[in-house]
Amino acid sequence: MRIRNLFAVVMMAGIYSLLSAGLFTIMDAVDVAFTEAAVGAGISTVLFLGALALVGHHERKPGHTPLLPLIVVLVTGGALVYGTMDMPPYGDPGNPVHHHVADHYLEESPHEIGIPNIVTAVLASYRGYDTMGETTVVFTAAVAVMLLLARRPRRPEEEEDEA
């Protein structure tokens, strides 16, 4: 089954995002779910629709056969599945990831930071430096979009001057 109507594709992506947000909620990652719902299902969908309004909502038929993309997808997917074989079992409390710094955060953050939301404590305090970098990345992304999209249409006489 293939969808050539990009409007439908955007709607499906939004629904997928909202479902992932539900999935994150079930896995108790409420902060992530919140972000996914607000950004993935909300703002991105609006921006995709804005882009569709500019480029039209029908995908052109590609000039190549789907064989090569299929092989690439199968190989990448196979490699990823193979990679999961070595991963520790999902949700096991003995996993290494739960015993590096997570113990310290869970046990000490009520005394060191004094706020109940450990995610915020980690993001803003323990890893404040990272979050500052992320904020800068968000800012940089906006600057890049401005450079790409905010060109003012030139008047013909200006173009002649520059040529």
Binding site: I43, V46, L47, G50, A51, L54, H111, E112, I113, G114, I115, T120, A121, A124, S125, G128, T131, M132, T135, V138, F139, A141, A142, V145, M146, L149, A150
Partner: peptide, 30 residues
């Protein structure tokens, strides 16, 4: 502990302002 509260609210306010400005700017551009 209070210092941590103030600091977290302060830096989070910075995040709010940046993300708000970025999202609205990109929407304007599109």
């Amino acid at each position: 502990e209070h210092g941590q509260h103030y600091g977290i609210i302060g830096v989070e306010a910075g995040v709010v302002i940046t993300v708000f400005g970025v999202m609205v700017s990109i929407f304007y551009l599109f």
